[in-house]
């Protein structure tokens, strides 16, 4: 069996219908347990106080914002190279989810920054790259909405996706590139000294898994909708010309 079989819309619809309930239940379970554990049953941090509880939303949403763009890049490249419609429809379906994840990361970061850094916003390399990534998400969505021909829209949005990837990479690695700005290093690291303490780490990992599953569930729902919308458009056109 090859992965390209899922480029067939019928095959994709059949497989996603089976997967969707399991992924949705998994997302609901992981998010409920992770957030309740983190919010109610973890202590305050000795420096950040209770604001450390924002980590359970900020870190997973920021990770998703960057990785959703990476997923969109891969699926857009598949469209450009192999012209598989399901692939580019998945990228289109993922964009609003990525935009919402970026908004959550920006909002929770600002709310955390005010009491901890003394400012809602700083033109720090990572924060600025993240804001630009958000604008790319909006531009990508707007371009899909503005163009009537779906293949032209797919081609042009794939180019936007390629250019925006620069900012997705910068927002992830800005600290390593410039070693300046207010934003601290990664909360999850293989280096025990850098990694967040165990008491916060366990619910955080559960929240990250929950966010990933929520993304997959929403992506399946939205890609199925895009495939149906494409079929609907074709049937309407046929009805009109008959």
């Amino acid at each position: 069996m090859s992965i390209w079989e899922y480029a067939n819309p019928v095959r994709f619809m059949r497989t996603s219908a089976v997967l969707l309930p399991w992924v949705s239940v998994g997302a609901a379970l992981c998010l409920s347990v992770g957030l309740i554990w983190g919010f109610f049953f973890t202590p305050d941090d000795y420096r950040q106080g209770s604001t450390v509880k924002i980590i359970y939303l900020h870190v997973p949403s920021a990770m998703m914002a960057i990785n959703i763009w990476a997923m969109m890049l891969v699926t857009s490249l598949i469209w450009v190279i192999r012209r598989h419609h399901v692939s580019v429809l998945a990228a289109k379906a993922a964009a609003p989810i990525g935009a919402i994840m970026t908004m959550i990361a920006l909002a929770t970061g600002a709310i955390w920054g005010q009491p901890m850094w003394g400012t809602w916003w700083e033109w720090d390399p990572r924060l600025t790259a993240f804001l630009i990534l958000f604008l790319f998400y909006l531009g990508y969505i707007a371009l899909w909405a503005a163009l009537e021909n779906p293949d032209t829209a797919a081609d042009l949005t794939s180019i936007v996706c390629l250019v925006g990837s620069v900012f997705a990479v910068i927002s992830r690695y800005a600290i390593n590139f410039w070693n300046q700005g207010l934003h601290q290093g990664a909360s999850l690291s293989l280096d025990a000294e850098e990694n967040v303490s165990d008491v916060f780490w366990q619910p955080l990992v559960l929240c990250i898994v929950g966010f990933i599953l929520l993304f997959v569930a929403l992506l399946l729902v939205r890609t199925r909708t895009e495939i149906r919308a494409r079929r609907l458009m074709a049937l309407k056109l046929r009805e009109r010309t008959a």
Binding site: F39, D44, G49, S50, T51, K53, I54, L57, H58, S61, I100, M103, I104, A107, T108, I111, W112, Q114, P115, L214
Partner: peptide
């Protein structure tokens, strides 16, 4: 949540609304 309760609750509130 101590003196940071407004910040923590508003972060959760905004996130839940957007999700």
């Amino acid at each position: 949540l101590g003196s940071y309760s407004v910040y923590v609750l508003s972060a959760y509130g905004v996130s839940f609304v957007l999700l």
